[in-house]
């Protein structure tokens, strides 16, 4: 409606004229250039036929039959907005095409340029990576050496070069060997230190000596040395004997702790801190009640006496209560 309201009469007249002319040439294509179509070129079957102006209609005479209509607005060589449609024209009957331009897309040239740029970028990155690896490899980095070998073999980042690949392969192998030797030496030194460490737990020392013997036999981290291996075997036997002795001692300690005769026997080591070599375990030389006076327990003599009496009674009470016929009950119920 808007379009009709503003359409000048002359235009309408011209349209009628064209229509008459088109009728004579068989058909007309009416291209309606809609919003944001300024300067878009209209191609009919690949031939530039007109140029869009926003809000205008372009009438293009065409022969009856099928036609491809392209409306293209260029954004440089690599990008464009392209509207494409196929129409079928009939004689004496105009075909209307409403054109709205889509989003900008890459042209074929643009696609090609992008690919070329990507390849160039990749090659540059590969080259940079190679150069970085080469620098690192030159500084002894084994993984970088492996990468350099791979680059020279595959030609990635650098031209293929079998000689250089071989060279760096040897370098990597040598570096690996050196690294392994260093690791072995470190393990050997650690085992030696642990084996010599008299403060270390016996079992750890024995394990270290086992390793040490193997290292001397295999030449691991050190030169093969049968004499040293044998010496350490002897040492291991000694330590194993010591370990077994420790176990016996531990068992004995348990048993000694179980010496029953008096509770003070077990507390004796504590008691004797001031006694020196000649001290004795027999702290019962002092009656407990008297000893308590020294500790100055805040209790009275009367309480000591009461406690003493009750304790004396208590030690046989269980038997008297549970088994009145027992000898303890007989002895203490009198």
């Amino acid at each position: 409606m808007t379009y009709r309201r503003f359409l000048p009469l002359t235009t309408l007249t011209a349209g009628l004229l064209i229509s008459v002319q088109a009728s004579a040439e068989t058909s007309l294509l009416a291209v309606y250039c809609q919003t944001d179509t300024d300067n878009a070129v209209i191609y009919v079957d690949g031939q530039q036929s007109s140029t869009c102006s926003e809000g205008e209609r372009k009438v293009i005479p065409v022969t009856p039959g099928g036609h491809r209509v392209d409306v293209v607005r260029s954004h440089g060589p690599e990008y464009e907005q392209r509207f494409t449609t196929d129409v079928s024209a009939e004689a004496g009957r105009p075909v209307r095409v409403r054109v709205s331009l889509p989003e900008k897309t890459m042209t074929a040239y643009g696609e090609q340029m992008a690919v070329e740029r990507l390849q160039a970028s990749r090659q540059a990155a590969e080259k940079a990576a190679f150069e970085k690896n080469l620098t690192a490899a030159s500084q002894g980095d084994i993984r970088a050496m492996d990468a350099v070998v791979s680059s020279y073999q595959s030609g990635t980042g650098v031209e293929k070069n079998p000689q250089q690949a071989s060279y760096w392969q040897q370098q990597a192998s040598a570096a690996r060997q050196a690294l392994q030797e260093e690791k072995e030496q470190q393990e050997f030194k650690a085992a030696l230190a642990k084996a010599d460490d008299e403060q270390a737990p016996l079992q750890e020392r024995i394990t270290a000596i086992n390793n040490l013997i193997r290292y001397y036999v295999d030449g691991y981290g050190t030169a093969i040395n049968a004499a040293e291996a044998k010496a350490w075997q002897t040492r291991r036997q000694q330590l194993q004997a010591a370990s077994e002795r420790d176990e016996r001692i531990a068992a004995a300690q348990q048993e000694l702790d179980g010496v029953i005769y008096f509770p003070f026997v077990r507390s004796a080591p504590e008691v004797m801190s001031r006694g020196g070599a000649d001290s004795s375990t027999y702290f019962s030389l002092l009656p407990l009640a008297t000893a308590m006076d020294i500790v100055s327990l805040p209790s009275t003599t009367t309480e000591h006496i009461a406690a003493s009496s009750k304790l004396k009674d208590a030690e046989s009470h269980a038997s008297r209560w549970a088994n009145p016929e027992s000898m303890v009950a007989q002895s203490f119920s009198e």
Binding site: A252, D257, Y282
Partner: peptide, 13 residues
């Protein structure tokens, strides 16, 4: 007769 601060299992054995 234990005569030192710590009972020595070695001496015990």
């Amino acid at each position: 007769r234990i005569d030192e601060l710590q009972m020595n299992p070695f001496k015990g054995i």
